[in-house]
Each structure stands twice: as structure tokens, then as C-alpha cells.
């Protein structure tokens, strides 16, 4: 069991063959607890139910209704169902309901990419997308001829844009693609992203000092 040297030149162990059989391991995503959405929904529900309850008790104990309560019941009584505000409001409520259903049914935590952990019993792991980008970027910058590199890692695809400082751009691109495909294996992801490489030569006007 070797850990790659900081130079990143050590051969990748077991994880390197993961890209060849992406379907061998089912990608079990991490599921978010949806704490924020739940807290927000609960807060709104507490406030609404609490206010209504308070108001009903207040009125029942012989007081006049508050202005907000009167305003709401007047609005509900005056506005017909085909009123533009009512239709817009209903559409918003529908969209909100759909959104909550979507939140309930999807895993969330899109920043975490599942890592292959077949040899680590009882340990599940995921790689942060930014960490994957940092690893790929480091590998890109280690390629001879690459001066700058920007990496964006999506859930399925990684986009690498590199600026060639010296050497033939075509050759640099080939070397870069090779280097990146090794690094892609080292990520150890259940579903390694496709790596798109774009290179351009240093433009004179934008040279950095």
C-alpha cells in the first residue's frame, strides 16, 4: 500500500482500474438530511399555525380581531378565483409544492462524488468536487509545457483549460490528456468524470508577469 509522493508520480494503486468498469460498483450517493429546508418549512408552519391559534383564542375571549386577520379574510372574501393575484398565487404554491417534493426525493449533496470503497468494509466515502478539481489541476500543471490550467469538475464531466507556455501545443495536449487520464484513475471515483481538455497558446497581450 503506497501513498503517492507529493510529486504525484507514484503509480496509482487499485483505484486506477476503476474507470474500466464504472458499472461494477453501484454509485451510492450521500443523502442530505435536508436540515435547512426542513427547518424553514417547520418555521413557517409554526409561525402560521401559532398565529392563527393565538388569534382564534384572542377573538374567542371577547377581543376584536387584529387588522392582519381582518385584511386576510377580506381579501379571501373579495377576490374571486379567476383574479390574477389568486391565479399567480396558486401557481407559486404549486411550484413550491413541486420544489419540496423534489427536495424530498433527490439525494442532494451534489458536491460529493462517491468514491469506490469495495475493499473498506463499513466505510463509505465521497470526494469533494473541489478536491477532484484541485487534484486534476495539479496534475495538469505538472505536465511539461503547461503554464496555466483551470479545471471545472461537474458531476459527469471535467473541463480542463490549459495554457501552453512552450513546446508544440499538439504534443502538450497529448501529454496532458495522458497525464490527466492517469490522475482521473487516482481520484478513485465510482464514476470517474469524462475529461475534456482544451489547450491554447499564451497570447502576447495577456502575458502575466
Amino acid at each position: 500500500m503506497s501513498v503517492a509522493s507529493p510529486a504525484g508520480t507514484a503509480p496509482a494503486p487499485a483505484a486506477a482500474d476503476a474507470p474500466d468498469r464504472p458499472d461494477a460498483v453501484r454509485a451510492r450517493r450521500f443523502w442530505s438530511a435536508r436540515r435547512n429546508a426542513a427547518a424553514l418549512a417547520a418555521l413557517v408552519a409554526v409561525a402560521a399555525a401559532g398565529a392563527l391559534l393565538y388569534e382564534e383564542i384572542y377573538i374567542r375571549s371577547g377581543n376584536r380581531a387584529h387588522a392582519w386577520r381582518t385584511w386576510i379574510s377580506d381579501q379571501l372574501a373579495d377576490r374571486h378565483l379567476d383574479d390574477a393575484w389568486v391565479i399567480a398565487g396558486s401557481a407559486v404554491v404549486c411550484a413550491l409544492g413541486l420544489w419540496l417534493l423534489l427536495l424530498a426525493a433527490t439525494p442532494g449533496l451534489r458536491r460529493l462524488l462517491p468514491l469506490a470503497t469495495e475493499d473498506t468494509g463499513g466505510l463509505r466515502a465521497a470526494l469533494d468536487r473541489r478536491a477532484a478539481a484541485a487534484m486534476l489541476r495539479r496534475a495538469a500543471l505538472e505536465t511539461p509545457g503547461v503554464r496555466e490550467a483551470g479545471v471545472k469538475v461537474g458531476r459527469r464531466r471535467a473541463r480542463v483549460r490549459a495554457v501552453v507556455g512552450f513546446g508544440d501545443p499538439g504534443e502538450v495536449k497529448t501529454a496532458l490528456a495522458e497525464h490527466l487520464s492517469v490522475e482521473r484513475g487516482r481520484l478513485g471515483l465510482v464514476r470517474p468524470p469524462m475529461v475534456n481538455v482544451k489547450v491554447r497558446t499564451q497570447s502576447k497581450g495577456r502575458r502575466r508577469s
Partner: peptide, 10 residues
């Protein structure tokens, strides 16, 4: 920097 997740997790 430079470490790979696989061996570390193992």
C-alpha cells in the same frame, strides 16, 4: 497535495 484518496481510505 498529491495524495490519492484510495490508499488513504484503505
Amino acid at each position: 497535495p498529491g495524495a490519492a484518496p484510495g490508499p488513504v481510505l484503505h
